[in-house]
Write a protein that binds this DNA or RNA. Sequence first.
DNA 1: TTTTAAATTTGTAACGATTACAATTCAATA
DNA 2: TATTGAATTGTAATCGTTACAAATTTAAAA
Lengths: 133, 133
Amino acid sequence: MKNNISEYLKSNGIKPSLQRIKIYEYLVKNKNHPTVDKVYNDLVKDIPTLSKTTIYNTFKLFMEKKIVTIITIEENETRYDADTNLHGHFKCEVCGEVYDFAIDDILIRKDILKEFEVDERHLYFKGKCKNCL
Amino acid sequence: MKNNISEYLKSNGIKPSLQRIKIYEYLVKNKNHPTVDKVYNDLVKDIPTLSKTTIYNTFKLFMEKKIVTIITIEENETRYDADTNLHGHFKCEVCGEVYDFAIDDILIRKDILKEFEVDERHLYFKGKCKNCL
DNA sequence: TTTTAAATTTGTAACGATTACAATTCAATA
DNA sequence: TATTGAATTGTAATCGTTACAAATTTAAAA
Ligand SMILES: [Mn+2]
Ligand SMILES: [Mn+2]
Ligand SMILES: [Zn+2]
Ligand SMILES: [Zn+2]
């Protein structure tokens, strides 16, 4: 697993330091779209010298290399996702969980695509999850 | 126009003070999804005593009454929109403009709707606009 | 191996948007 | 006019993020 991640980072032009491996590994294993704070508080148990700045730096690098995507649903809470395929996010306004959901298609008028060159597509819903209903 | 707005606010349970009328009017006239800062800097010319806190308070109230929606594309820039109908936003990463676009439909698997009670739907794209290509 | 340079990590301070809060002003009513 | 509550305002506090320089690690050169 760790070797896989190391190779994966290398193949994306990222030098696989211990911190980078652990951070990416964390994101792959924890599919609940954690914040920087969550990642830090969990990983600092493993790496006591870890700095929050390193996590910010690392996510910035991962974003540039396009191996993670950023999720901005609430203005004060930035989350990260190792799944870079197009999919939707559902945030429960009761428990705060952010779930994935599959998108079959987004139907927009074709003339719009002539006006814009689309690089990223983001979609999120808000409401109540099954547990909280 | 101003009378229309006053009536509209009243019909949504909002007492139409001068500040509230001007802020809502600004949002209706300026469909470029302004930030609090933009609204403040433009309106303070009309209302020299205006406070930025008032704009925050007012947008919070408008959100509660559901006559404006919040747009969170970038984590550090919150924008507001008087158009509460479902539509997409396109942010140009070159010029920073945020454009509207029409959505015909979002195709998702029906079983997802059994898991979640959806209150809000948000969709935004990023890329380059025609002017910047 | 030692030396040197570059890359990475770290800690602290600064920043900026938003919020909390108390004081002031305004508007409605008696 | 006096009273009361709502709305507005200014200031301070908060908190996530960024800037920056020092320390550490890694890799290459001598
Ligand atoms: Mn996801
Ligand atoms: Mn819009
Ligand atoms: Zn829930
Ligand atoms: Zn543009």
